[in-house]
């Protein structure tokens, strides 16, 4: 049974990477249509990934430089494997054991941390600037996200994702997005920061610091980071689906709900200009955190 579980989780991981790349292509297409142009095919990211994977690599800056893309990939894949896709289905719940929300939040930081170490070793001046910005930005969006997750944990008296999904069963109005709207708002705003979507796009910042942390990364390194980022995005969509949209009863529902969540940062990205770093962090520490606190107080009062 254990081996079968590992096998199915591995299959799901491959599917997650493919789905993430597909969503990336869709986002490029939608962005193009919003800018009144034709845009690349939706399979463009697969082509890019293959090309990057087969390019030559002749750069070395030390051990951490090699390990950082792996950290990124492992961080993304680990997050993905801890989130159940369909709760209750033995083939599609990955390795989600009880009490895993806290482990999960640790795992979500791992990729950023490895990236920070590797980029700092690459020696390019843009990389440490990007890393500093990324870590400060993380300190910004983690606060509202953790508050809203704590609200859900207290409300459902469990730290397991499966428990939270089970608590939302029985109709659309039992979903946490309706029962705890403020906490959901806080989490969905912090999702914008996690995805690096545009008002909070301070890490890559193409106009200022080239592309920030991965400036020195090329070819195969970049392809690992690319797939890590894709699967990490899918993991986050799945997590938000499980926490706020009542989970999924089958694969089709999982696709539909994650696609809806995927559209939210995409549409915000395409219509907004960019914050500076301190504006971005300050924003996360005021409005979304306030929303989260409102629900936290409400939970205590209702109880």
């Amino acid at each position: 049974m254990m081996w079968a579980k590992i096998f199915y989780a591995f299959l799901a991981l491959l599917g997650g990477i493919a789905y993430g790349l597909f969503l990336g292509g869709v986002s490029r297409k939608i962005t193009a249509r919003m800018q009144n142009r034709r845009g690349p095919t939706i399979w463009q990211n697969f082509i890019d990934l293959w090309k990057l994977f087969r390019k030559k690599t002749a750069i070395s800056h030390g051990v951490m430089f090699y390990l950082a893309p792996m950290f990124r990939l492992v961080g993304g894949a680990g997050t993905f494997l801890l989130v159940p896709i369909v709760v209750g289905n033995p083939y599609l719940s990955n390795f989600s054991f009880g009490g895993d929300l806290i482990v999960l939040m640790y795992f979500m930081v791992l990729g950023c941390l490895g990236m920070a170490l590797g980029a700092a070793e690459s020696g390019h001046p843009h990389a440490p600037i990007g890393v500093t910005r990324g870590l400060s930005q993380m300190a910004g969006y983690e606060l509202p996200f953790v508050i809203s997750v704590v609200v859900l944990m207290i409300a459902d008296k469990t730290t397991s994702i499966e428990g939270i999904v089970r608590a939302q069963q029985g109709g659309i109005l039992h979903w946490h997005i309706f029962t705890h709207p403020f906490a959901a708002a806080a989490a969905f705003i912090s999702l914008l920061g996690m995805m690096g979507s545009y008002p909070f796009q301070v890490v890559l910042a193409p106009q200022e610091i080239a592309i920030g942390p991965p400036t020195e990364y090329s070819s195969t390194f970049l392809s690992y980071m690319f797939s890590g980022r894709s699967v990490f995005a899918v993991a986050k969509y799945l997590l938000f689906m499980n926490l706020f949209l009542g989970g999924a009863s089958n694969l089709l529902w999982a696709f539909v709900k994650t696609f809806v969540i995927f559209l939210w940062p995409l549409f915000i990205t395409n219509v907004f200009p960019r914050f500076r770093l301190e504006q971005s962090v300050l924003f996360f520490w005021t409005w979304p955190s306030l929303f989260g606190l409102i629900d936290l107080v409400r939970i205590y009062l209702v109880r």
Binding site: R28, A32, Q35, R37, R38, G39, P40, D48
Partner: peptide, 11 residues
């Protein structure tokens, strides 16, 4: 590379 001629459609 921008909207008018859109080289992104060639990848």
């Amino acid at each position: 590379f921008t909207s008018r001629f859109d080289a992104e459609r060639l990848g």
